[in-house]
Simulated scan of single mutants.
Amino acid sequence: MNPEQFFKQAKQALNLPENTVLQSSYQFGVDADHLADLVQTGIKTATTSAYDLYEPNEPLPKVGAYDVILNSRDEPICVTKTDDVIITPYRSVDDQHAYQEGKGNRSFAYWKRVHDDFFENEYAAAGKNFNPETAMMVLEKFHVVYPK
């Protein structure tokens, strides 16, 4: 089943209006299966993306938007609804956001170590330099709406 079919099924199950749109479908990070499981079980309720790496016409996450989370084989796992979106400096990410990301021991130290490496690689792949003092991040909070 593709993400659009999965979302159509979710809309029916949730009694959402027919004109409700799917914002996006995506995999999380470098361990898509594990992170999709954390989302589906409600452990992972937040994510961080690099504002500087969004394409010019690529939409930012929006409060109230629906997304389909995919596993490593691009199979739909669940539908999330975005609760909050904040653009903030990387250096301003706090303990609470790190905990809500649900990774490792959920500490800020773990979050920072993993994300320093992740963003260094992501920026390098885009031909840019990652500077934790000046990089801007998109912090998104969400919850699973389907399947429950």
Rank of each mutant, 00 (worst) to 15 (best):
N121Y: 11
T134E: 01
Q27K: 15
K148C: 02
D95G: 14
K44F: 02
V93T: 04
Y146S: 06
T41Q: 15
E120D: 09
P59V: 10
T45I: 08
L139S: 02
Y26P: 06
K128P: 04
S92E: 09
R73L: 14
M1S: 11
Q12H: 04
A135Q: 02
A36R: 13
A65Y: 02
S25L: 09
V79R: 13
G29S: 11
A32S: 15
E133M: 08
L53P: 00
I87D: 01
F130L: 11
A135R: 01
Q9W: 01
I43E: 14
A65V: 01
V114Y: 01
L139E: 03
V144L: 00
I87E: 07
S72R: 12
T47C: 03
T41M: 13
T134F: 02
L35I: 08
P3N: 05
L16N: 10
F142A: 03
V68K: 10
V144R: 14
Q9P: 05
Y99D: 06
K128C: 01
D116R: 04
L38M: 15
L16T: 04
Y110R: 13
I77C: 06
K8M: 09
K44M: 04
Y146N: 05
V93Y: 00
E55Y: 01
D74K: 14
E122V: 00
N57Q: 08
Q9D: 14
V93H: 04
S49H: 03
V114Q: 05
M1L: 10
N71K: 07
M137Q: 00
K62F: 12
M136S: 11
